[in-house]
């Protein structure tokens, strides 16, 4: 079976600074994969390379066996990959409902149509309301997205990310800056909405990572030093030395 996402010998340099230094990674279908690593390890850069926000210096990324080289973000999205952002990235002036509806338009086949009325499309309205129900924002439906609380905006971001029905979901630090209860809420939400889908996620919160991920990759200075099941990674001495020890100590 082809992996959902495969990365071969990926490199990225900004000028002389080499940020990603040869990454090989294979993520299977319906796998929940977490990428962890210290600050500045290149996690977000890796995300941006996969999703076409940046072009790689060398190496290859393939989605379901298809090479993504040279494709624009919107083309990659149409192939079934969707992402969220580390910094909340929604449509602040539009209502919560409209945010989700916009995320549905392409997937429901409306594309660049100028002969449909969005308000008269039952599948759009019902689809968007179903997503709102799923992310618990039904009560906020008609508010401008910009006035929601931080956790709600993050939930909306996840809603937008999954709405298009992509089967590979990439979440960049979905719980960053959240309180404990908010984190629990978002983790439950992620578990619920990524059922049966491939999830790739960057995360700092170890509790979230070990609770959610099937496999973990540890990224340090642009290289993956370990990949495996949570317990394997936890036991790996290199990982403990490079990252986990420090992070676990810091938590105490």
């Amino acid at each position: 079976m082809t992996p959902a996402l495969e990365i071969n010998n990926l490199h990225k340099s900004f000028g002389k600074a080499e940020i990603i230094r040869g990454i090989d990674l294979s993520i299977g279908q319906s796998e929940r994969h977490a990428i962890i690593g210290p600050n500045g390890a290149g996690k977000s850069t890796l995300f941006n390379l996969i999703t076409g926000r940046f072009a790689a210096s060398s190496g290859k990324v393939s989605l379901h066996g298809q090479d993504l080289a040279g494709l624009a973000p919107f083309e990659i999205n149409r192939l079934g990959l969707s992402r969220s952002f580390q910094i909340t990235n929604i449509f602040p002036k539009m209502t919560v409902f409209e945010n989700v509806r916009c995320a549905l338009l392409w997937a429901k086949g409306y594309k660049y149509s100028f002969w449909h009325m969005v308000s008269r499309s039952r599948d759009l309205t019902e689809g968007a309301d179903a997503i709102l129900e799923q992310i618990n924002l039904t009560a906020r439906r008609d508010l401008p997205a910009g006035v929601l609380s931080y956790a709600e905006q993050r939930a909306l971001e996840i809603g937008i990310t999954i709405a298009g029905g992509a089967d590979v979901i990439m979440l960049d630090e979905p719980t960053a800056g959240m309180s404990h209860s908010e984190t629990d809420y978002i983790v439950d939400l992620i578990r619920k909405v990524t059922e049966g889908k491939t999830l790739v996620m960057v995360e700092h919160d170890m509790g979230v990572v070990f609770g959610l991920a099937d496999r973990i990759s540890v990224l340090v200075y642009g290289e993956i030093i370990a990949t495996g099941k949570p317990e394997e990674v936890r036991g790996n001495p290199r990982v403990q030395e490079a990252y986990l020890g420090a992070a676990l100590e810091a938590e105490h």
């Binding site: 999703t51 926000r53 624009a72 973000p73 919107f74 999205n77 149409r78 969707s82 992402r83 952002f85 990235n89 929604i90 449509f91 602040p92 002036k93 539009m94 916009c102 995320a103 338009l105 392409w106 997937a107 937008i160 298009g164």
Partner: peptide, 11 residues
């Protein structure tokens, strides 16, 4: 509102 987000929605 957000051209980048729109790109990641397939547009």
């Amino acid at each position: 509102d957000n051209p980048e987000r729109a790109e990641f929605l397939g547009y």
